[in-house]
Amino acid sequence: MATQRHVEVSEVGDVTVVRFLDRKILDEANIQELGQELFDLVEQDRRMKIVLNFSVVEFLSSAALGKLITLDRKQKAQNGLLKLSNIRPEIYEVFAITKLNKLFSILDDEADALAAF
């Protein structure tokens, strides 16, 4: 299991599970760093199946959504798959309002996300 500054990365079979470490994905500098850590998983490590587990995340801003969208684009460009899980209701509402629940594959929990590949 590898821990970067903002995420913890582990392997379950051929799936990379990424757990956020920050309760609030908010601060501009942190979002930049977080984005780079996520992009590295795709661009450097070529992880083809990724689950982002949001269980500890209580708050995120639209700037954080922007990083997730860019990550999704990069992952699709390499024909990889990205799934999101454990999103609490308030944050899911942000995805629903912005219709990003249509763009992302969002599952209730990590087990469902792993089974969905």
Partner: peptide, 21 residues
């Protein structure tokens, strides 16, 4: 409109929509 299909993959432009909601 950030929810329009052609704008859905743009990384910014959602703040005002969230405020209004």
């Amino acid at each position: 409109d950030p929810t329009a299909p052609e704008n859905l993959t743009k990384p910014s432009g959602r703040g005002v929509l969230l405020i209004q909601n």
